[in-house]
Design a protein around this nucleic acid. Structure first.
Lengths: 203, 203
DNA sequence: TATATCAAATGAACGATGTTCAATAAAAAA
DNA sequence: TTTTTTATTGAACATCGTTCATTTGATATA
């Protein structure tokens, strides 16, 4: 058959994306396949390739939508209190998100494009938005002339938090038995922020 | 043909492992296949399965050997000076290693076992050894009664460093243009350590 | 030496994968 | 009603991980 027009192209794209999300959430990216997505939305394999360049492209779009979800979750965090308190709430929300959406979050970092290919430019924007959330929170620590330091510290905190959750979620670090991701993140934030304040004006 | 006995079983295992390392180093884990390994050592596919349980098992062994290499690299770092200086040298050596062995290091974290499977116990030992290197360096900061705090801080630093290198090596963080992994790691170590010292005795 | 035994090595075979594209069928236009 | 267009299909191809009956050369036995 052809030209069924049960759904518009945009609807189909969304259906495929939702199906992908459901599969990855349950089984992980490793077990995602084009055929599974096609079957789930009741269309053929070819239709998927009509909507997305290939499976990598589909996963990139899934990851982008996960970044949106993460952004929404972090934006919902109360903005009262000082930098330390706010940052601790942010990390808590972040860790919550990673644990409630483990396979989706893992997909963000498990998936790598084939050698030579790069992520689309608009993907970078999704990441920047998240980093801005942290920058906003820690900005009060810095003088007006230290925007670059603020920029860098936001990236340090973001990357570090990622590392903690990443190693905690795999078994590559014997964290679980000894210390939870939350504990590690608290240590990170508390000490890093204390160090920041102590070192202000020394650089 | 059969029973060629050009090589012992151990020799064959080593040859397969070396071939795997060469392929991953050049092309990344994503493009590793049993057939490539077999071809490279001049044996058939079946022989690989004679030596290793499956491709996942082979990759786990490759990753273990990479952890050994990393351990050697970090153990070679001079042990003179105070915790801060030593820690900065360690992070520098770590970052060097990740950049000189990018695909091998990425394989450590890109590869995930199928759902339900866990890493062998001896793998955990390889990780612990590395964490101990950090614990040893930062131990002087802590009182004798704070071994648990020392334990946790070592894991915070290790995970954070991992996160920084991980995001720096992918394009998932616009680090390269704005700040190198080295800069971020320096910030991490300097501020975290300063915070540790400032907070000693307050916990 | 001749024969039997054994196990290392093979590679065809199976099911599943990503991806392509000529064929098709239904909607839209003429 | 006829023509044009195009959304949709699914068979086909190359590749993948994995299995296992078969083969073959070394070893043990007679």
């Amino acid at each position: 058959m052809a030209r069924r027009y049960d759904h518009s192209r945009d609807e189909l794209s969304q259906m495929a994306l939702d199906a992908t999300r459901a599969i990855v959430a349950r089984e992980g990216v490793r077990d995602l396949s084009t055929r599974k997505v096609a079957k789930k939305i009741g269309y053929s394999v070819g239709t998927i390739y009509n909507l997305y360049e290939n499976l990598d492209d589909l996963i990139v779009h899934l990851n982008a939508s996960t970044l949106d979800l993460l952004y929404d979750a972090l934006r919902a965090v109360p903005t009262t209190g000082g930098p330390n308190r706010r940052l601790l709430r942010l990390t808590e929300a972040y860790i919550d998100f990673t644990q409630q959406n483990l396979n989706l979050w893992n997909s963000l970092f498990d998936h790598r494009l084939p050698a030579g290919q790069e992520l689309p430019e608009w993907y970078g924007g999704k990441v920047s938005r998240l980093l801005d959330l942290i920058e906003d929170v820690i900005a009060p620590i810095f003088a007006g002339s230290e925007t670059r330091d603020c920029h860098i510290s936001a990236r340090v905190l973001w990357s570090s938090l990622h590392g903690i959750c990443s190693l905690a979620s795999s078994e590559k670090l014997d964290i679980v038995a000894n210390a939870s991701a939350t504990q590690l993140a608290e240590q990170l934030v508390t000490n890093y922020m204390a160090g920041l304040r102590a070192n202000r004006g020394k650089g």
